[in-house]
Nucleic acid binder design. Sequence first.
DNA 1: CGCTAATATGACTTTTTTGTCAAGTATATT
DNA 2: AATATACTTGACAAAAAAGTCATATTAGCG
Lengths: 150, 150
Amino acid sequence: MKITAQEEYGLRCLLQLAKLPQDQVVSVKEVASREGLSSAYVEKLLRLLSKAGLVHSLRGIRGGYALNRPSSAITLGEVVRALGTVQTTDHICNQFTGNALACTHLMDCGIRSVWSGLTIYIKHFLDSTTLDNLVGNERAVTERLAKRWV
Amino acid sequence: MKITAQEEYGLRCLLQLAKLPQDQVVSVKEVASREGLSSAYVEKLLRLLSKAGLVHSLRGIRGGYALNRPSSAITLGEVVRALGTVQTTDHICNQFTGNALACTHLMDCGIRSVWSGLTIYIKHFLDSTTLDNLVGNERAVTERLAKRWV
DNA sequence: CGCTAATATGACTTTTTTGTCAAGTATATT
DNA sequence: AATATACTTGACAAAAAAGTCATATTAGCG
């Protein structure tokens, strides 16, 4: 139960875009250098976010990436869904890897209830947090989140 | 952001032990067959739980595994910590894999705030749910959880 | 005491996830 | 129009996680 690398680094790149003044783009190279990541990797991450419709790119000599919407209109939940796998009941039950043909509890399963309860609980957190909540210094972000979740 | 395979299948095995009458053990083979998993895998999972002090084993011909404590005294949080990695701020910041020497935000990081906020939020759910909450049929478990979390 | 049914352990293989690379396409600027 | 800079794409390589195997050890039971 942890944040995947793609979610982690993808969010960082996205926050670099969130910091831009309106109508300005930033290049992959610049994002990579600000985050200490390789350009190739940042490219891959931004492409994932682009496929999910969260960012767009401009090609050519003054090209780069920018958010498709204001950062107040993008939730952490959308970001995580674009970059990683957010579990659903379907995932839990259909990706059974044991040596039986299917999970032995398909009909009646207490475990499904917990994981799906937890999934909904987490979704609530992620979907109520927007990108602009995360821009700024650590103290400010911590205070904003604390106000909501403690 | 998802449940790992070890957490998933480890919890299933543990719930098989939780269903046992007091002072009774169940063999790896039996658990494997009830869950449709291979014996080798169940062995590995129960060994992890044993190292974490949640279960104990008896060797020899009538041997097997059993819980170390009543199921009402074991939380989901303990189980997940025994089987998977529950993220901490240290993990998030020190496992930087980019090509810079360290994360560029070590001093001041809004992302750290979110992930650690989310981690605490999830921990709350996991640590407030005990194994005995998860024993029984699906409807019963769902109702128990709903009462607490909705 | 010796056989059998069970756990214990660590090395190994397979699969999935991470991260890189190389060759291609678009566009602003001169 | 040529050029340089930037995004695009799919295949590949490396690392981590999942799952298996072979061998050793323990203990009940005849």
